[in-house]
Measured scan of single mutants.
Amino acid sequence: GIPATNLSRVAGLEKQLAIELKVKQGAENMIQTYSNGSTKDRKLLLTAQQMLQDSKTKIDIIRMQLRRALQ
């Protein structure tokens, strides 16, 4: 079985993952909103794209940590 310490770690990672998935969803929504907007929305679009990139990276890292914890 999986050690108890790993189980609480997994629960924490799953919570983090859920949050990051919401951030990713929000960033994707912002990108959709701003991509057909005016030029003043360009900065917001770039910010949203950066957020999305960061979020995807975090999600990958969390998933990797989850896999390790579940081994």
Rank of each mutant, 00 (worst) to 15 (best):
S38V: 09
Q53G: 03
E14N: 09
D54A: 12
P3L: 08
L7P: 12
A48R: 00
E14Q: 15
M51Q: 05
L46N: 04
R42H: 13
N36D: 08
T5E: 13
K40E: 11
L44V: 03
K58H: 03
R42Q: 13
R68L: 14
Q16S: 05
R9N: 07
N29A: 13
A11P: 04
K56V: 10
K43R: 09
G26T: 15
M51L: 11
M51T: 06
G1F: 09
K15F: 07
D41K: 02
K43D: 11
G26F: 15
K15V: 05
Q32R: 09
L66K: 01
G12W: 15
K24Y: 14
E28P: 00
R68C: 14
R67A: 10
A27F: 14
A48M: 05
I31Y: 02
S8F: 04
R67F: 12
I2M: 10
I61L: 11
A4G: 12
L52D: 01
R9Y: 15
A11G: 04
Q65M: 12
E14I: 15
Q32E: 12
G26P: 00
Q25G: 02
R9C: 15
K15Q: 08
Q32I: 11
N29I: 13
T5A: 11
K24M: 13
M51F: 04
E14V: 15
T39C: 14
L44K: 11
T47F: 13
L70R: 08
N36W: 05
M64C: 14
N6C: 15
R68N: 09
S55E: 00
N36H: 11
D41N: 07
L70G: 05
A48H: 03
G37Q: 06
I59V: 03
A48P: 00
L21W: 05
Q25K: 11
K43F: 11
A11V: 07
L66W: 01
I59D: 00
M64Y: 07
K58Y: 01
I61D: 09
L70P: 02
K58L: 04
Q65A: 11
K43S: 10
A11F: 05
A48D: 00
M64F: 07
S35Y: 13
R42W: 14
G37E: 08
L17F: 01
K40Q: 12
D54S: 08
I31C: 05
A11I: 10
I62D: 00
A11Q: 10
L66G: 00
E20N: 03
K58D: 01
G1W: 09
D41T: 03
L70M: 08
A18F: 07
T33N: 11
L45R: 02
Q71R: 09
A4S: 09
S8G: 09
K56F: 04
I62V: 02
L44P: 02
N36A: 08
G12D: 14
L7G: 10
L66A: 00
S55K: 01
Q71I: 13
K56L: 15
K22L: 12
L52S: 01
L46V: 09
K56S: 07
S35Q: 11
L13F: 03
